[in-house]
């Protein structure tokens, strides 16, 4: 099993941390992992993306040109990465702020309205763990137990008080995700 994925959106949405939680979850499950951010002058409001590879084999390249899964959280990222999903691969996106929806016919497409749900619940910071839950529902490559362990590992101790809310958000995300095609 090798899962090459890109998570892309705005800086401040928790794109990099979501990748980090996944990478840690992979470590907890004894997988090989790599996490490569598109670092740069990006900041809150700018674009941010991270490539995460999780595999049961040695990972040759931490950088890819085709992805098994793309999690897309803004229009710019949709424009850039829709074409880079492997045929038969998965595209997950939050419809919030998306004006041009994906048109590919050879991939599986899911939507998750996490922005709206997180706002409704009054905690927009749970947005990324909801998306993570949605992803894990369609690609259960790591067990929920290891995800929660990974979540704890990826957070500094002072943030552990948010663990129950984040775990709950993962479960909400699993309910929230909808298959489009």
């Amino acid at each position: 099993m090798t899962e090459e994925m890109i998570i892309a959106g705005f800086g401040g949405q928790g794109v990099l941390s979501m990748g980090k939680i996944l990478a840690y979850s992979g470590v907890m499950q004894d997988f090989e992992v790599s996490w490569m951010p598109a670092y740069g002058p990006e900041m809150r409001g700018g674009t941010a993306n991270v490539t995460v590879v999780i595999s049961d084999k040695t990972i040759s390249s931490p950088i890819s040109h085709m992805y098994d899964t793309a999690i897309i959280l803004n229009q710019q990222s949709m424009d850039k990465f829709e074409s880079m999903v492997r045929p038969g691969g998965i595209l997950i996106y939050d419809t919030n702020g998306i004006v041009k929806h994906p048109t590919r016919k050879d991939i599986k497409i899911y939507t998750i309205d996490a922005t709206e749900e997180a706002a409704k619940r009054g905690n927009t910071r749970l947005f990324n763990t909801m998306i993570l839950g949605g992803y894990l529902k369609v690609r259960p490559i790591v067990t929920l137990e290891n995800v929660f362990k990974g979540l704890k590992k990826s957070l500094p101790e002072r943030a552990w008080k948010t663990l129950p809310a984040n775990e709950e958000a993962v479960r909400i995300g699993m309910e929230l995700i909808k298959e489009i095609q």
Binding site: K20, V27, V33, W35, P37
Partner: peptide
Amino acid sequence: DGVIGQMMEK
């Protein structure tokens, strides 16, 4: 290089 410096691995 910046790739190896910025990426995370085990």
